[in-house]
């Protein structure tokens, strides 16, 4: 046997170790790298990802409720909304949802049934939702990348989106806001205190909302 017959060429292999296309060629790929950091989220099983998304959605809902009573910026933003406006966030096609309604001037979480929602922000899949909740992308990037779609009136959706941005500015750390917002909001001292209070109220709020 010549030395050549024992090398990659005779086995239909290219010098780099990747098999050439052919009926008998076996293709060997290098093993995919384990995802690092936050990207590990995407390799979790669907039920786990769905659970994380549900908790994140509830955190947003609880934050919305709390801030709509205590944050002047959000109160001003929703002051022009009609009473009874219902909007929702949901993950397609059978993922978690949260539905919120304006009641007595504030926002209230009313469960997960989308039936009466005027506006629904849909994530096209669970990974897109996780990208947003993990602070990897902002709401505008999610729209620009077609990761989210809106059902309903676009003008009303823009109002809701502005309100959601205010809520998010209290839910995420500054470093994430810097990365995900077009213009990162700057919170005053009193707003930082409000953020702290919200953080303390968040866990019991999520637990209570989870039971609804």
């Amino acid at each position: 046997m010549s030395p050549e017959s024992n090398n990659n060429k005779s086995a239909g292999m290219r010098p780099g170790g990747v098999a050439a296309a052919g009926p008998s060629a076996a293709i060997s790929y290098p093993k995919a790298k384990e995802p690092m950091g936050l990207n590990r989220l995407f390799s979790l099983s669907y039920p786990v990802k769905s659970g994380i998304a549900r908790v994140a959605l509830l955190a947003l809902a609880v934050g919305f409720e709390y801030l709509s009573r205590n944050c002047d910026k959000l109160k001003k933003e929703i002051s022009t909304w009609e009473e009874g406006r219902v909007f929702a966030l949901s993950v397609l096609s059978k993922g978690p949802s949260v539905v919120l309604r304006k009641e007595n001037g504030a926002i209230r979480y009313i469960g997960g049934n989308l039936k009466d929602s005027e506006i629904v922000f849909y994530f096209k899949n669970i990974d897109s939702a996780l990208m947003l909740f993990a602070g990897l992308i902002g709401a505008h990037t999610a729209s620009a990348q077609h990761r989210t779609i809106v059902h309903g009136d676009i003008g009303i959706a823009m109002e809701v989106l502005r309100a959601m941005n205010i809520a998010q500015s209290y839910l995420y750390p500054g470093i994430v806001l810097k990365k995900t917002f077009k213009r990162a909001p700057k919170l005053s001292f009193s707003e930082q205190i409000l953020k702290l209070k919200l953080m303390l109220a968040l866990l019991p709020g999520i637990v209570a909302a989870y039971k609804k």
Partner: peptide, 13 residues
């Protein structure tokens, strides 16, 4: 204008 959907895609806030 601030409620127009096109604003989402504008690079500047």
């Amino acid at each position: 204008a601030v409620n127009d959907g096109a604003l989402i895609y504008n690079p500047e806030e």
